[in-house]
């Protein structure tokens, strides 16, 4: 009986500590100046051909590898990305169309490994300490610095809706993500890790700026 009491006390103490830390305050960065918030996580600036997304850092991938940059938190890959967001793939697709980007739609699940995504070029940067930092400066590939990730508006609207992964932006060419990087071909794998020295800490908010290179 004594052991049961000890066990129950220990479990209770553990849950209390866990519950207490769960409500620790998390900083909000620059969201207001870009016009995004929890209730309005995406904003389109047609004049600048830019889309702003509010995201949250998932610290797991400041240490472990992934292939997902931004994923909707309710998607099946919602916990597998460097950045979580409330923005849905559909909303992001519509926003990119509004700023004049054209989808590539050249990849399917049956495409040959190494095939590169096409579509309008997108310059992706993270707002850190009120400064825009290019996405490739905040990421390592297989432990080495990334050069240019060459993000493209892949499209994949129908496939994304069917798969329900929630994928918004992927590091390597992807037949599901609305946008993905063309430098690394399809099926490149999980080799991308966020730089802890550059990105905010786990649980903090960060604005992502996606600029369509339209002419």
């Amino acid at each position: 009986m004594k052991f049961k009491q000890v066990l129950v006390t220990a479990l209770g103490a553990g849950l209390l500590v866990l519950g207490g830390t769960a409500f620790a305050p998390q900083s909000v960065q620059a969201a207001k100046s870009y016009g995004v918030s929890d209730s309005k996580p995406i904003k389109v600036n047609q004049a600048k051909h830019e889309v702003y997304l509010e995201t949250t850092i998932n610290g797991t991938y400041l240490n472990q590898p992934t292939r997902h940059v931004i994923v909707n938190e309710k998607g099946s890959n919602g916990t597998k990305s460097l950045l979580k967001t409330k923005v849905t793939p559909n909303q992001f697709y519509a926003a990119l169309k509004k700023v004049g980007a054209k989808p590539g739609n050249n990849l399917t699940a049956k495409s040959k490994a190494g095939t590169k995504i096409k579509g309008t070029k997108l310059n992706v940067s993270f707002v850190i300490n009120n400064k825009q930092v290019a996405a490739n400066k905040a990421v390592q590939v297989k432990g080495k610095a990334a050069k240019n990730l060459d993000f493209r508006f892949g499209g994949n609207k129908a496939h994304a809706a069917k798969m329900k992964t929630g994928c918004v932006l992927c590091f390597d060419s992807c037949p599901v993500g609305i946008a993905s990087g063309a430098t690394y071909g399809f099926s490149y794998g999980e080799h991308f890790t966020g730089k802890a020295s550059v990105l905010p800490k786990d649980g903090q908010h960060m604005v992502v700026v996606v600029k369509a290179a339209t002419k």
């Binding site: 220990a10 553990g14 500590v17 866990l18 830390t21 769960a22 610290g59 919602g78 916990t79 649980g203």
Partner: peptide
């Protein structure tokens, strides 16, 4: 990191990674 991430993932919570791991290890 991995212990914390593994525990919080199915709950879809943002519990602090290291503290979560310490609680699990302590238990």
């Amino acid at each position: 990191v991995v212990i914390g991430a593994m525990i919080r993932e199915p709950f879809n919570q943002m519990w602090p990674l290291t503290q979560t791991s310490f609680v699990v290890l302590a238990l």
